[in-house]
């Protein structure tokens, strides 16, 4: 499985090819093909149970920790199959933010952000690490709020701040690919806005390939360049956001955009 791939050269395009995923015999994804371009935000939408999270977790191979999983097809990241890479290496390039804010409660704000770079040995000195932490927190629009209390524990932050900290922790790896699984589902509007700004900034300024699962069409319209709609494990619509929103081709997309599903 593990080939001698030890490095990927960003920007990285993510290509999903005929992806089929079964969990304990149940087919969650039934042959999905899709690609996400660097510097663009691709929103993955669909009713719950349509396989959005599974799609995301297959890209960074987290799905392999679920019981009874079978994967067919391929995920290609920057020209290399994800399944031929060591997963630890893959995840250094493909970072993820989850639905629930999950900064590690026993690590300080600083240590949470520094965790990834430390593990992967990305900083050669304390100063360099400080810079990475600052950069990540700035990109996550959290720096100004926490710069004077980097040694506090995350429990002192609000839920929205904790989610931005989770984002910063992911960004500290300077990932060319960022996966977000409904990152604002449990977050208030003010924090949602900041996270959305952060996401757009990453795509525009850093050329990051962003895949975001969202359940609100409004959010998709606000931040995404492309929209992909999943329904019962199949890709039913995929195109530039404006086209999809203005001229949905598929009945299900139309119903979904109207909020009927």
């Amino acid at each position: 499985m593990e080939k001698a791939v030890t490095e990927l050269k960003p920007p990285l395009e993510v290509q999903i090819r005929e992806l089929r995923v079964k969990l304990e015999g149940r087919e969650i994804l039934k042959g999905v093909s899709l690609s996400a371009k660097p510097g663009a935000v691709t929103a993955v939408m669909g009713p719950s149970g349509s396989g959005k999270s599974t799609l995301l977790k297959t890209i960074n191979r987290l799905i392999e920790y679920y019981p009874g999983v079978e994967v067919e097809g391929d995920v290609v990241v920057g020209g290399v199959s994800a399944f031929e890479m060591d997963p630890y290496l893959l995840r250094r390039y493909v970072a993820m933010v989850f639905q629930t804010p999950n900064p590690f409660p026993h690590l300080t704000i600083y240590d949470n952000v520094a965790l990834g770079p430390r593990i992967h040995g990305l900083a050669k000195s304390k100063k360099e690490l400080d810079e990475i932490v600052r950069w990540a927190l700035e990109k996550a629009m959290l720096w100004d709020e926490v710069k004077d209390r980097l040694n506090d524990y995350p429990s002192k932050l609000s839920g929205g701040q904790q989610q931005r900290l989770s984002l910063a922790r992911a960004l500290a790896l300077r990932p060319p690919v960022l996966l977000l699984d409904e990152p604002t589902a449990n977050i208030d509007p003010v924090n949602t806005k900041k996270i959305e700004e952060a996401i757009i900034g990453l795509a525009r300024e850093e050329g990051t390939t962003v895949l975001i699962v969202t359940h609100t069409p409004q959010q998709a319209a606000r931040i995404s360049d492309y929209i992909a709609v999943l329904y019962e494990g199949r890709l039913v619509e995929w195109g530039p956001t404006k086209e999809v929103v203005l001229r949905p081709r598929h009945e299900i997309t139309r119903a979904y955009l109207k909020g009927e599903i």
């Binding site: 030890t6 060591d86 630890y88 992967h120 040995g121």
Partner: peptide, 8 residues
């Protein structure tokens, strides 16, 4: 670095 992590 990477090899050492796998070894560990």
């Amino acid at each position: 670095m990477y090899k050492r992590r796998i070894m560990k």
